[in-house]
């Protein structure tokens, strides 16, 4: 394992009950790199993130996070390695206010962003801080889901479909935020349906098919591989 490697997933299999969903996922992410997992619905992208967090059923294989083996760890121990998870359904708590949602998560690393800095990055959240978390608009909820993991000091961000179902102006703002996080040396795994959102941000893209990595495409190969991606993703 090289010094710059932050996440190494090897031969990851995952199960929901009896059904075998991931069939040997292999990929690595370097420190400060942004990668995107692309693929059709049901290919296993979301399950890959859930398996990384220990949220699926049985898992086998290896998940090295910053040099620590996480395959047998409980979810809270994995998070404490410095992993921030933003689930597809956003996971904003209805029983907590927006600010309580923001402050809920415990520290999992040093150097997390301050609440003031987060409100500067997402001004809407400052205005809505006392509203019930689920009363926020979809875009605001997505900002909140992102902001709360930036406060914890997590350095590896697993972001599941953060652009899904949002207005173009908000998607553009999220792209700016991700670009800013890349400049700040966060290591980011995006799961995205929205190819045009992910493609400019990702240093490398992995195509997931039938619970395996079918292809790896670096940013500079993108133009040459577009026909393949167009066919595969139905762009």
């Amino acid at each position: 394992m090289t010094a710059t490697e932050y996440l190494r997933v090897s031969d990851l299999h995952a199960f929901y009950g009896e059904s075998h969903v991931l069939h040997g996922i292999d990929f690595t992410v370097r420190r400060g790199e942004c990668v995107a997992l692309l693929g059709r619905n049901g290919a296993g992208r979301t399950t890959t993130l859930r398996a990384l967090m220990g949220l699926t059923g049985r898992r086998t294989g290896s998940i090295m996070i910053n040099g620590r083996e996480a395959i047998a760890m409980a979810p809270h121990r994995i998070a404490q390695l410095g992993v921030g998870y933003c689930p597809e359904e956003r996971g904003i708590y209805a029983s907590l206010s927006a600010e309580e949602n923001l402050l809920l998560l415990p520290q999992v690393g040093s150097g997390g962003m301050s609440v003031a800095a987060l409100y500067e990055m997402f001004p809407n959240l400052a205005e809505r801080r006392h509203s019930q978390g689920t009363r926020l608009s979809g875009g605001e909820q997505q900002m909140l889901a992102l902001a709360r993991i930036l406060r914890t000091g997590a350095r590896l961000l697993l972001l599941d479909e953060i652009s899904e179902g949002l207005a173009p102006v908000i998607v553009a703002r999220l792209a700016e935020v991700i670009a800013e996080l890349k400049r700040r040396d966060y290591t980011i795994v995006l799961v995205e349906q929205n190819f045009r959102f992910a493609a400019p941000l990702a240093d490398r893209m992995f195509v997931v098919e039938h619970g395996q990595i079918a292809a790896e495409i670096a940013q500079h190969e993108l133009a040459a591989r577009m026909p393949y991606l167009q066919e595969l993703l139905g762009l």
């Binding site: 809270h76 998070a79 689930p87 996971g91 708590y93 309580e100 809920l104 415990p106």
Partner: peptide, 20 residues
């Protein structure tokens, strides 16, 4: 707040680093 969060969504709350 941990309790309320864990009552509402135990798995996600654990994935945030709380020992549910």
């Amino acid at each position: 707040a941990y309790l309320r969060a864990a009552t509402e969504n135990p798995k996600l709350t654990q994935a945030f680093g709380i020992n549910v």
